[in-house]
Nucleic acid binder design. Sequence first.
DNA 1: GCAAGTTATCGTAGAACGCCGATAAAGCGT
DNA 2: ACGCTTTATCGGCGTTCTACGATAACTTGC
Lengths: 114, 114
Amino acid sequence: MVKKSPRQVCFPEESRQADLRPVEGPQADKELAALTKAVGHPARVQILRLLSRRTACVCGDIVSELPLAQSTVSQHLKVLKDSGLITGEIDGPRVCYCLDPRALRRLKSLVGSL
Amino acid sequence: MVKKSPRQVCFPEESRQADLRPVEGPQADKELAALTKAVGHPARVQILRLLSRRTACVCGDIVSELPLAQSTVSQHLKVLKDSGLITGEIDGPRVCYCLDPRALRRLKSLVGSL
DNA sequence: GCAAGTTATCGTAGAACGCCGATAAAGCGT
DNA sequence: ACGCTTTATCGGCGTTCTACGATAACTTGC
């Protein structure tokens, strides 16, 4: 039987088009607050770093990298996913989490506007 | 009596020297988490925006710009000050808050490293 | 020294967060 | 269908956050 090939990247041909959303204003402010709030925890920063280190997506072995219970890691992943910074694709019995480059660029733009 | 001249900038000749601190590693991760946590609230984003709009420092009329009680704003200012993102200089009976450009650059570097 | 104005701190109440173990849900392989 | 593995969700508990009013601390000007 063919072994399922490990997924390499979630955004292989990521759209490079410019982000037209404004970088200031009430809406942008809320967005910036929400995004930075999601990043604002050591465990979540660590997760983001793990995901950016490997060009391929890492699955739930994130859990084994962190000194936290599986349920806790799952919750942090949920926070990041709700913020849009990462995506989770179901890949067989596991879930493959990846950084969303667009959301990350958005965060950088917003922070850069300060 | 000479009227106290309104303070214009808190960092008039800000040191432009490069930031040598590493942008990754456990220490940087904690720093990034702490800084983004400080930014991660709508009211605090608004405060940062207020302070960046005016090149001069704004004092406690920040309070009148936000729909929050004075004590609440004072607490948010404390969070930002503790994070290092802003500084508060006593200027007569008031306090003059300013963005710290170095901390802001640090934040941008750290976010940029994601 | 006193009154007025400005800001920080205290006390408190409710909401949200962070963590865990236990349990449920979902897919794979036999 | 039945385990096995992986992940999500639930319940609970302690901590932190956010907000407010009240009060204290400090400076200026009279």
